Computed example of a mutant assay.
Amino acid sequence: MTNITTLRPGEHFMFKNFEWVCLDPNHPDGGLLAIMAEPWGKDVKFCPSDKFADEKGNRNNYRTSNVRGILSDMTNSVFGGKGLLAHTVDLVADNGDRAYGTVKDPVFILTCDEYRKYREFIPHYDSWVWTATPWYCGDKDSDADCANVVRTVNANGQFGNDDARYVNDVTPACILNPKSLNLRQSMSYVEEVSE
Rank of each mutant, 00 (worst) to 15 (best):
L181A: 04
Y115C: 12
A34E: 07
V170M: 06
W130A: 03
M1S: 14
Y136W: 13
N177I: 04
N156Y: 07
S77W: 03
R98E: 15
W40K: 05
E38R: 15
N182Q: 10
N3E: 09
P106S: 12
V89S: 09
K82C: 11
T64V: 02
K140G: 00
D90Y: 07
D73V: 00
Y115P: 01
S194M: 09
M74H: 06
C146T: 03
D141P: 01
I109C: 12
G31S: 09
F159V: 04
R184C: 12
T5V: 12
L33A: 07
Q185M: 12
N17R: 14
G138Q: 03
C22K: 06
R63P: 00
N182I: 13
K104V: 11
S180R: 13
Y118G: 01
C174T: 11
R116A: 06
E55V: 09
C174F: 06
D143S: 08
D24F: 04
E55T: 08
G101T: 10
L71H: 01
T75W: 04
D29V: 13
P48R: 11
G81Y: 04
P134R: 00
S188T: 11
A93M: 04
V170W: 05
N177Q: 10
N177Y: 05
Y189V: 14
N17S: 15
K140R: 15
A86K: 09
S77N: 05
V78K: 10
E38T: 11
R68N: 05
A37Q: 13
D141F: 14
N61S: 08
L183D: 07
G83W: 04
T75F: 05
L33D: 03
T131A: 02
V150G: 00
A34G: 10
G138Y: 02
I109A: 07
L32W: 05
C146L: 13
N154T: 04
D113W: 02
K104E: 15
D24V: 02
G57V: 07
K16H: 13
R63Q: 12
S72C: 07
N66T: 01
T111F: 01
N60K: 09
G96S: 14
P106D: 11
R165K: 09
E192Y: 06
N161Y: 11
R119A: 13
L91S: 02
G30M: 09
D169M: 03
C174R: 00
D163H: 09
L176R: 05
H87C: 10
C112W: 01
N26W: 06
R151E: 05
D162S: 13
A132L: 01
P178G: 05
R59S: 08
E19R: 14
R151W: 01
A155G: 12
L85D: 04
L33I: 08
T152N: 04
Q158N: 14
